[in-house]
């Protein structure tokens, strides 16, 4: 698994190599064919999520392609993180949160009564905005998932492979017993990615994974995402449009709408290939947001 570092050095990323993508220009996100969404990993049908009486996001229809990077963008309060958390039932943990509509994962209704949310999260991992390593050693952080699932045979190799895959192995191989909190923010976030990979999920959800990181650490994570997309389906929430343009294959643009009663709801405005969203968006609101004419 040395492909990671090789990939990092290769100048194969047109988006990120240049200075930040100029807004409104078609961004050649990734050099690859983006297939049509024939057999999507996720399909949401009029997905709405409410917290108590408040409807945070309404009627979202979205298909997520296998081994693609899908970016959810939009202004604060547009419900993009809420939608993301609905995909692996993380909203279950918030008292009062309720999901309406349907979220299917390979055709299975994720919210059907017989579905075990623990099994769902094992297949659909998540990386959070603020790096949240456990206050344990680097090794124990990565080994956490396999241990919880009773997969302790060959644990050392699993840990090494996950750390290598997350482009962190070379930096930590001599200090695996050190506390994870001694790492820098960027390293901590890659550790959290390694921790997720060690469970071998199919999907990795990322909730603004770079917003607490400096630009260099951000680029390393973006590199990593390109690399991981060969194996994993990635859905990323970001409020950084350049990031969406650089990393994603498809982009969903959300906005916050005020209804007749003056209540704000998140809405999906437009969803398409990233090049289309950033090049020729069909909705005026998308265009305004992309070109910076909107809050």
């Amino acid at each position: 698994m040395t492909s990671t570092s090789a990939h990092r050095e290769a100048p194969a990323r047109p988006g990120a190599q240049e200075s930040p993508v100029s807004v409104g220009r078609p961004a050649a996100a990734r050099d690859r064919e983006i297939p049509d969404l024939v057999h999507p990993v996720f399909e949401t049908i009029s997905l709405s999520v409410s917290y108590g009486d408040y409807m945070a996001v309404r009627d979202v229809d979205l298909k997520i392609g296998e081994r693609q990077i899908t970016a959810l963008i939009g202004p604060s309060g547009c419900g993009k993180s809420t939608v993301l958390r609905a995909l692996n039932r993380m909203n279950d943990l918030i008292p009062g949160a309720h999901v309406h509509g349907r979220v299917s994962y390979h055709g299975q209704d994720l919210y059907a009564s017989h579905i075990d949310p623990i099994e769902v999260r094992r297949r659909i991992g998540m990386v959070f905005q603020k790096p949240n390593p456990f206050p344990k050693s680097i090794y124990d952080n990565v080994a956490y998932g396999p241990r919880v699932h009773g997969r302790t045979a060959g644990l050392d190799e699993t840990v090494e492979r996950a750390l290598t895959r997350a482009a962190l192995w070379d930096e930590v191989k001599d200090k695996l017993r050190q506390n994870a909190l001694s790492l820098s923010g960027g390293q901590q976030q890659r550790l959290c990615i390694a921790r997720t990979i060690a469970v071998y999920p199919e999907v990795i959800l990322m909730d603004e994974p770079c917003s607490a990181l400096d630009p260099i650490a951000t680029l390393r994570i973006e590199d990593l995402m390109h690399d991981l997309a060969r194996e994993f389906t990635i859905v990323i929430v970001t409020h950084n449009m350049q990031q969406a343009a650089r990393v994603s294959d498809r982009t969903a643009f959300f906005t916050a709408e005020v209804d007749e009663q003056g209540v704000r709801h998140g809405r999906l405005v437009e969803y398409d290939r990233t090049t289309t969203i950033f090049g020729k968006p069909t909705d005026k609101r998308t265009e305004d947001y992309i070109t910076g004419r909107f809050g």
């Binding site: 993380m90 094992r122 297949r123 959070f128 456990f134 206050p135 956490y144 919880v148 469970v199």
Partner: peptide, 22 residues
Amino acid sequence: PGALREGSYALGSSTRQTATRV
């Protein structure tokens, strides 16, 4: 911090595992 719990749940742990291991 709730973030540690979320981290644990997101790796597919049960409440018991999250409580005892994190």
